[in-house]
Write a protein that binds this DNA or RNA. Structure first.
Length: 823
RNA sequence: GGGCGAGUGGUGGAAUGGCAUACACGAUGGACUUAAAAUCCAUUGGCUUAACGGCCGUAAGGGUUCGAAUCCCUUCUCGCCCACCA
């Protein structure tokens, strides 16, 4: 019998799949379509264990669906633009394009070594002009709709990457890529109006039933819808408007001072000529030098000064002092707050520190504290209104509505819905990205590049230093252009687009990747979309997944696509760690998948990474765990070959005694494996079930060998086993399938269907408890009547001992499972 | 500070109201071998017992239930996300 020579087998079948275009996909309206997509990789040059996990999961889903008769689309491509390539090019003194394409070459090779079922004819890469020209096209479409615009305002700036960052790219005040502290800079930049879709982006989260709750919550928080009231405070002397936004209008009667952000635009005018002017200016200066990280860190004491001015509370015409403090932020609400120290902990601490007055307006209950001096902290819970004029006695939840109504009536306030989500800043002062297709003309202003002139190609082999300013600005031939409107000399925009734009619609491009008459072929898109199963890391929960939803909604709004959401189901797989840490070059704990493939084969690696844990959980990778996977595959290999040898040796066919038990195990396994592959995705337990099946077939086969006989049940079991493992270990199973005398690929084999009649057993083991403790187990016919069961239980020797002659108070019967005697 | 999730043998994990620890890994012993590897067989939560068996046991404590790893409450620990968000 031949050995399991995985290197040879894997090579053979990888060539077979390529030569026979096994995974080529095209529209077939007779079949149900299934679009499975894994988040496409950044071409770093080497695949890592995270890729292996992500793509193995996707591949099992894809291969299962192919076997189950679906018309499957399973594409792959590369998210090729971005800073790492630019940095690598600077470091190695090469060109980002050359570098990237070399990396793609390596990665394609490694991905092919894993045996993934990609339709390679659809491969795309975002750095090719045939792709990014459509980024430019979409951008112009957005501009036509008023959804792409330029504005000057303070932006996030990473001093290390020398570029701007979107809000989503700033993590804890640091650049998400290099962890450098982000600073604010006043710049004129391009934005996409994602806020136009804020309501649907939020509402439609509800329709994403098959997304992890966690991801939906994160998006919900990021969009951050809050309901409140804008209240029109006035400056006491000048009567100028000082609106504040609050969600706690029920506490308005407790507002004892006001705070404006140090950056508040009117602040400098408000203090002009006041005795406090100097100290306030000094404070503003101090705060501006403080970094955002320091400013928002919880343990730093809130600082602030009195401005010398007063505001009028419109509900009672009370004159309250206006302070400025670092705990009020310019970029949320109106940049000014009403401070209610009794019912907001931050205001409470600040008021205590600066001896500001307090007034309780909500008490806990009838006995609740109403004297502010007795409070040790702010009372932020619900309660009953006090000191609130006509609203006294109402619960604060009632008062919220009544006060809002009243304010609107009196025109001293207006209900408002406030969103945290801001427009998406997409200008980047970097080279390796899509040029923003805009031209600045002194006469005509900002002019989009006409559609016929697209793509605006990224100039190649230019000088990149990574220091200061857009590299494209130094390329004269690029910058200088004739205005498309008046033909006078004009200048091109030299910033490039954020690379998250590239990945915001690639799943649409995959439907018709070579289409050159438009952004995509609508017929293809409307056939394949939506993505039935999307698989990727949780780190994209907000960024990529929110942007993709935004793009889809935009394209839907201009009638280019039918669907409103891009990804029907989402699976977020856990990370692959090494010794509890993320694998990285700097830690030197990188595991190279290709090394494992050389030693154990891709099939063993695929099996192991799925068996280690359920897909959402983290895995701590240990190379030595490969042995178990390898051993199991060898067992299957030997088993199937021994079976085949026996079958072809002219034995007789007869009953061998194990049939019933084997059928039970087989159909249990078919049920379980099918469930997991079609949606449960707990591949670890699917695999353990198949291991149990192997543990059942092995002794059965031995019996058959001893008696030099076999039968159909054994054959069914072996056949089903090979088909069921094939999505996980495709190379080995293709080979076994061929050895078993079949022609062509195992993907054409019919996926086994379980028959519930084999799941019924004649005899059952019933657990017998006495006073809820397991004391015995009895075997009874499956259809035993309750009376007969009781009789049998009481006749059991062990139970007799426990019961003796004491009376049985209660006799609990859980059919087919358990009996509990309460004494 | 807020939200979400998790905590089970030496290890990865299984069991989502009914036999806790399936399936593996590792370990120990045995068979085969001149030997080793591979393979196969057996044992493998703790305490106790000569043995049959008994008792304990799913982070800690309490509750609901005939019955709880699973549901509820309190506490602890860890992870992730958000965060001076008004």
């Amino acid at each position: 019998m031949s050995e399991y020579n995985f290197l040879e087998i894997e090579k053979k079948w990888q060539s077979y799949w390529t030569e026979n275009h096994t995974f080529k996909s095209s529209i077939d309206k007779d079949k149900e379509k299934y679009y499975v997509l894994e988040m496409f990789p950044y071409p770093s040059g080497r695949i890592h264990m995270g890729h292996v996990r992500n793509y193995t999961i996707g591949d099992v889903v894809a291969r299962y669906r192919m076997s189950a008769g679906f018309n499957v689309l399973h594409p792959i491509g590369f998210d090729a633009f971005g800073q790492p390539a630019e940095n690598a090019a600077i470091k190695h003194d090469t060109d980002p394009k050359e570098w990237t394409e070399k990396c793609i070459g390596w990665m394609v090779k490694e991905l092919k070594h894993m045996g993934f079922s990609y339709d390679w004819d659809r491969e795309l890469s975002t750095h090719r002009d045939e792709y990014y020209r459509w980024n430019q096209w979409i951008f112009i479409k957005m501009m036509e709709q008023g959804l792409a615009y330029k504005k000057g305002c303070p932006v996030n700036w990473c001093p290390s990457c020398q570029t701007t960052l979107a809000n989503e790219e700033v993590v804890n005040g640091e650049c998400w890529r290099c962890q450098t502290e982000v600073i604010q800079k006043e710049l004129e930049q391009w934005y996409l109006k994602i806020t136009e879709f804020k309501d649907v982006l939020l509402e439609d989260l509800e329709t994403l039933k098959y997304w992890p709750e966690r991801v939906r919550t994160m998006q919900k928080n990021w969009i951050g819808k809050s309901f409140g009231v804008e209240i029109y405070f006035k400056e006491a002397e000048t009567e100028k408007n000082l609106p504040v936004f609050t969600t706690r209008q029920d506490t308005i009667f407790g507002a004892t001072y006001m705070v404006v952000a140090p950056e508040y635009p009117q602040l400098k005018e408000m203090i002009k000529g006041k005795p406090e002017e100097a100290q306030v200016l000094k404070f503003i200066e101090q705060v501006s030098r403080k970094s955002k990280i320091v400013r928002v860190s919880a343990d730093v004491k809130k600082e602030g000064v009195f401005t010398g001015t007063y505001a009028i509370n419109p509900v009672n015409n009370e004159k309250i002092p206006i302070w400025t403090a670092d705990y009020v932020l310019m970029d949320y609400g109106t940049g000014a707050i009403m401070a209610v120290p009794t019912h907001d902990q931050r205001d409470f601490l600040f008021a205590k520190e600066h001896n500001l007055p307090m007034r309780v307006v909500i008490k806990n209950s009838d006995a609740g504290i109403t004297n502010a001096d007795e409070l040790n902290e702010a009372y932020e819970e619900d309660g009953v209104q006090v000191n609130s004029a006509q609203f006294d006695g109402l619960t604060n939840t009632e008062a919220k509505e009544k006060i809002a109504d009243w304010m609107e009536q009196e025109k001293i306030g207006q209900r408002q819905v406030f969103f945290r989500l801001k427009d998406w800043l997409i200008s980047r002062q970097r080279y390796w990205g899509t040029p923003i297709p805009m031209i600045y003309c002194d006469k005509c202003g900002v002019v989009p590049v006409p559609e016929k002139d697209l793509p605006v190609k990224l100039p190649e082999k230019i000088d990149i230093t990574g220091e200061g300013g857009s590299p494209l600005a130094k390329v004269k031939e690029f910058v200088e252009v004739a205005c498309p409107v008046c033909a006078q000399p004009a200048r091109r925009e030299t910033d490039t687009m954020a690379t998250f734009i590239d990945s915001s619609w690639y799943f649409l491009r995959f439907c018709s990747p070579r289409y050159d008459k438009g952004v995509f072929d609508q017929e293809e898109v409307n056939y394949w979309m939506t993505v039935d199963q999307y698989i990727g890391g949780i780190e994209h929960a907000v960024l990529h997944l929110l942007y993709s939803r935004f793009f889809t909604k935009f394209l839907n709004s201009i009638g280019l696509v039918d669907m409103k959401e891009p990804f029907q189901k989402l699976l977020t797989q856990g990370m692959v760690l090494k010794d509890g840490e993320v694998m990285s070059k700097s830690k030197g704990n990188i595991v190279d998948p290709d090394e494992i493939i050389q030693k154990y084969g891709a099939d063993s690696l695929r099996l192991r990474i799925l068996f280690a844990a359920p897909p959402e959980a983290e895995i701590d990778w240990q190379n030595k765990d490969m042995d178990g996977a390898w051993r199991f595959l060898n067992r299957v290999w030997t088993l199937v070959l021994s079976f085949h040898e026996l079958k072809t040796s002219g034995m007789e066919i007869k009953e061998l005694g194990f049939e019933k038990k084997l059928l039970f195990k087989l159909h249990t396994a078919i049920k379980k494996v099918t469930e997991e592959m079609s949606g449960g995705f707990k591949f670890n337990t699917a695999i353990s079930t198949m291991m149990e099946l192997v543990n059942e077939i092995s002794p059965a086969l031995r019996t058959a060998q001893e008696k030099n006989a076999m039968n159909e049940v054994l054959e069914q079991a072996v056949t089903a086993l090979v088909i069921m493992i094939s999505p996980i270990t495709p190379h080995m199973c293709e080979e076994l399938w061929q050895v078993m005398g079949n022609k062509g690929t195992i993907l054409k084999a019919a996926w086994p269907i379980y028959d519930s009649k084999y799941l019924e057993q004649d005899e059952l083991t019933i657990v017998v408890q006495v006073n809820s403790k397991v004391r015995s187990k009895i075997i009874v016919p499956a259809d035993i009547a309750e009376d007969a069961l009781k009789e049998k239980v009481l006749a059991d020797e062990k139970i007799k001992n426990w019961v003796q002659d004491k009376p049985v108070k209660k006799f609990i019967v859980i059919p087919k499972k358990l009996v509990n005697l309460i004494m």
